[in-house]
């Protein structure tokens, strides 16, 4: 239970960072923290007490393996996050070129 709680706190730290930080790069990093917390959640849900890694090898039983499906989901979501993070970094670089700053309080052409 304590693990889930810590994981949730990690998620909240990420959310806090996204909401309060002004620097574009810090926002991207906070998003990454949040996404890692979500991935950790998924892996934790799959954990089974005393379970081993879910790889089929010669002479291993399937019964004691942890659930492999959430691990596959986590791999997929990591790939997606890679794409989104690359996109955000590219946008941040372009914003820096246009505004000469990473501070979101100074990037305010859209308001209202």
């Amino acid at each position: 239970m304590i693990l889930y709680l810590l994981c949730f706190i990690l998620l909240l730290i990420g959310l806090y960072g996204v909401i309060t930080k002004r620097d574009l790069i810090k926002i991207i990093l906070s998003l990454a923290i949040m996404e890692y917390a979500a991935n950790l959640f998924l892996v934790l849900f799959a954990y089974r007490k005393g379970g081993t890694y879910p790889i089929l090898e010669e002479g291993r039983e399937i019964a004691m393996m942890v659930d492999p499906l959430p691990q596959a989901l986590v791999l997929t979501s990591i790939v997606i996050e890679l794409g989104i993070t690359a996109m955000l970094v590219a946008l941040a670089v372009r914003l820096y070129q246009k505004y000469n700053t990473f501070d979101i309080t100074k990037i305010r052409r859209l308001a209202g």
């Binding site: 996404e35 979500a38 959640f41 998924l42 946008l91 941040a92 914003l95």
Partner: peptide
Amino acid sequence: EFEASFKYAVMGSISSTLILV
């Protein structure tokens, strides 16, 4: 447009993370 897209991407990622959880 970059500003709007950045905002959209950040909000979209937050909601996607919630959906993943």
